[in-house]
Design a protein around this nucleic acid. Structure first.
Lengths: 183, 183
DNA sequence: TGCAGTGTTCCGTTTTTACAGAAACAACCG
DNA sequence: CGGTTGTTTCTGTAAAAACGGAACACTGCA
């Protein structure tokens, strides 16, 4: 009955958990996410506890974390008192939300710091030229990436999909981007 | 004299180290990278040990890791016996190499697993439909992203920069991608 | 062949993080 | 009220990661 009972589903959940750890997300959190992603119905926390063998407290904080990313939401089930949870199943949506949140948590503060350092270095005669230049370049680079993301993120999903499928061929359509002659 | 002596350089290195930990890279490794990035000359391992206060063994493995990513390389200094190391200073190059390597290490194996699971599920009548469908969709999604990356990665750098600066406006140039009328 | 300089690998310790289980606390509702 | 559900916090423990130091390997030179 439970998703976890199917060996392939289980393999997916375990792998997803490991993936998480490699990207700085803790194993329990990503396992919970995988389980909800595979499930066709919203699950109460107790079911998650049972299927993944985690402590209730862990599941609670894990769910909160996932809701913080906006990829899991709490739903009310008719006639049920307990909260139930479902995962976002639109993968584009899932990805953009994760990226948006990580940007907010990690990139934005970094850009802020780099801005500060750049500003201070600009009027600091004692600073070695390379240090100033390299930090400034890093600041510009990350800012540019961030701005690009904010813009692309706003595009309608079908456009994103088209762009993605185009792959490297986008270059053809861009005036002044050179011929698409390269390998 | 040493880069680390400048407070802003030091702040950068420390922050970079923390950033690393959030993305699954260990602190020492990213600190070494930051130090080399800021340095205008190649450094021998001993200097890194001294400036960052790490053990020799750590620096050795850290440098190996960074070379594995292709963002640090060993250079020979005229008249010196010791190996010296420099970091990639072209940030585009740095980013694409990091992404390429993480894809190779983490995404590719994931896609391989998903392919296997999808294949098996396709002929497994006992598998719940949702599980089959969701795993297949995930497989397709990640494959598409991977293929997109491989293509974009091959574009010449100036083209990439142009595309990046265009931001969301790329959509305008794509026939059949809809009007760029959305927010 | 021995030795000094350099670099890597291994091993034990420390530090950090994740986790379960319990308990306190809060809401909600009959 | 008192039962059910949910969150938060705390404690101890276990697992994992990071790390330093020493042992080991290699090289070139005297």
């Amino acid at each position: 009955m439970s998703v976890i009972d199917h060996p392939d589903a289980k393999a997916f959940i375990l792998h997803w958990g490991e993936m998480g750890t490699q990207w700085g997300v803790n194993r329990s959190v990503s396992q919970i996410h995988a389980l909800l992603y595979l499930s066709d119905r919203a699950l109460p926390a107790d079911d998650i506890v049972e299927q993944l063998g985690l402590a209730r407290s862990n599941v609670s904080t894990g769910l909160k974390e996932l809701q913080g990313y906006g990829i899991v939401r709490r739903v009310h089930i008719e006639g049920e008192r307990r909260d139930h949870f479902t995962a976002e199943t639109d993968l584009w949506e899932m990805l953009t939300r994760i990226v948006a949140e990580r940007k907010r948590r990690e990139i934005d503060p970094t850009v802020a710091l780099l801005a500060e350092l750049s500003a201070r270095l600009a009027k600091d005669d004692s600073a070695p030229r390379h240090v100033r230049e390299r930090i400034t370049r890093m600041h510009e680079f990350i800012s540019t990436l961030g701005n690009w993301y904010e813009q692309v993120r706003g595009l309608p999903k079908p456009t994103l999909v088209t762009l993605m499928k185009l792959g490297g061929k986008v270059a053809r359509f861009i005036p002044g981007a050179g011929k698409p002659s390269q390998k």
